[in-house]
Simulated assay, not measured.
Amino acid sequence: MTLATFYGGSVATWQRVLGDELHYHHGLFADGDDLADALRRAVRVLYPYLPHGARVLDVGCGWGGPLAMLVEERGCAATGVTISSTQRHHAAVRGLDVRCVDVETVAELGRFDVALLLESFEHIVDKAALLARLRGCASRIVLRVNCQDHAPAGVRFGGTMHMVDSRTLRALLEAAGWRIWVWRDRRPASLASQPAWRERLRRLPPDVVAGDEHLATFLGWVEDVMRDQRAWAQANPLLEIVAD
């Protein structure tokens, strides 16, 4: 299955799992938060690095949840890119500027103040090449990345994620010429995401999950993580990085 097909499932079904705003990333929870609150907070904590009115390239923008927040709350001139025509169509219906391209092969990305990769860098195959390209088209890069520190680099999540450890990620950024000035692990605040996703995925009819490779992969991953979430969290940081 291609990455474009993997992200081409039913929007209505994904809304049952992710919520109406379709944020497909971990939430960052504070006391009293539900998943929707935590998902919005996960974007808003990045606002200090995304100036009002900035030209932002949202790489792997999905169905447009974070992109809409940047436009509506920060007044950003925000452009999203996704490899999925289904995601692009949904975002376009919402009035968002989204291009359906493979960011690793498209000839021209444009010029931006900030490149944002919100749990999308995992899908990039040639990470060094993309970081170098983004260095040429954006003045700043803001990432939140799931790393795999206690296992060899490899392909995960239905063959769609190309995982690296945090040391390798830092080396790749620095080799591409990025100067890192924020580096923090957001995993502890994100852990309530997984039980919330598991509950919603389990509510779907089993035949719907079994008939969609992405949903089946997602549920299988959540179930694996929840067997020993604390150990998994220690081995797999969720890194928030800002570099100029």
Score class of each variant (00 low, 15 high):
residue 192 A to G: 09
residue 6 F to Y: 12
residue 221 W to R: 14
residue 161 M to C: 13
residue 175 A to K: 01
residue 138 A to P: 14
residue 81 V to L: 14
residue 19 G to Q: 06
residue 45 V to L: 03
residue 89 H to C: 13
residue 132 A to Q: 09
residue 79 T to A: 11
residue 187 R to D: 04
residue 233 A to E: 14
residue 61 C to Y: 14
residue 91 A to D: 12
residue 106 V to K: 04
residue 39 L to Q: 13
residue 160 T to E: 11
residue 66 P to Q: 01
residue 114 V to E: 12
residue 244 D to T: 08
residue 24 Y to T: 11
residue 181 W to M: 00
residue 178 W to T: 05
residue 16 R to V: 11
residue 116 L to F: 08
residue 133 R to Y: 03
residue 126 D to Y: 06
residue 84 S to P: 06
residue 182 V to D: 00
residue 184 R to A: 01
residue 36 A to T: 11
residue 108 E to H: 13
residue 109 L to D: 03
residue 97 D to S: 10
residue 82 T to E: 13
residue 8 G to N: 07
residue 48 P to E: 01
residue 78 A to N: 06
residue 206 P to N: 09
residue 4 A to I: 14
residue 207 D to Y: 04
residue 22 L to D: 03
residue 148 Q to T: 14
residue 57 L to K: 05
residue 148 Q to C: 14
residue 81 V to I: 14
residue 223 E to P: 10
residue 161 M to T: 13
residue 35 L to C: 10
residue 71 V to C: 09
residue 65 G to Y: 03
residue 243 A to I: 01
residue 202 R to L: 15
residue 139 S to R: 08
residue 62 G to W: 06
residue 115 A to N: 10
residue 31 D to N: 04
residue 242 V to S: 04
residue 72 E to K: 03
residue 108 E to D: 13
residue 20 D to W: 00
residue 26 H to W: 14
residue 218 F to Y: 13
residue 11 V to Q: 10
residue 118 L to H: 09
residue 239 L to F: 08
residue 11 V to T: 15
residue 86 T to C: 13
residue 190 S to L: 08
residue 151 A to H: 09
residue 55 R to V: 09
residue 49 Y to Q: 03
residue 36 A to Y: 01
residue 37 D to L: 01
residue 109 L to P: 00
residue 96 L to N: 03
residue 81 V to S: 05
residue 54 A to G: 14
residue 92 A to Q: 15
residue 106 V to R: 03
residue 27 G to V: 10
residue 165 D to P: 06
residue 61 C to R: 07
residue 112 F to W: 15
residue 22 L to F: 08
residue 64 G to T: 07
residue 179 R to K: 05
residue 185 D to C: 12
residue 172 L to V: 00
residue 216 A to G: 05
residue 213 E to S: 03
residue 39 L to T: 04
residue 237 P to Q: 00
residue 87 Q to M: 13
residue 222 V to L: 15
residue 36 A to P: 06
residue 131 L to H: 03
residue 12 A to I: 06
residue 94 R to T: 00
residue 241 I to T: 05
residue 224 D to K: 15
residue 175 A to I: 01
residue 23 H to T: 01
residue 214 H to I: 07
residue 38 A to T: 02
residue 73 E to F: 00
residue 220 G to H: 09
residue 126 D to P: 02
residue 96 L to A: 10
residue 178 W to D: 00
residue 140 R to I: 04
residue 91 A to Q: 07
residue 24 Y to I: 13
residue 4 A to F: 15
residue 94 R to D: 00
residue 91 A to M: 09
residue 132 A to C: 05
residue 177 G to I: 02
residue 217 T to G: 12
residue 190 S to H: 08
residue 230 R to K: 15
residue 28 L to G: 00
residue 2 T to P: 15
residue 88 R to L: 11
residue 130 L to G: 05
residue 230 R to V: 12
residue 77 A to C: 10
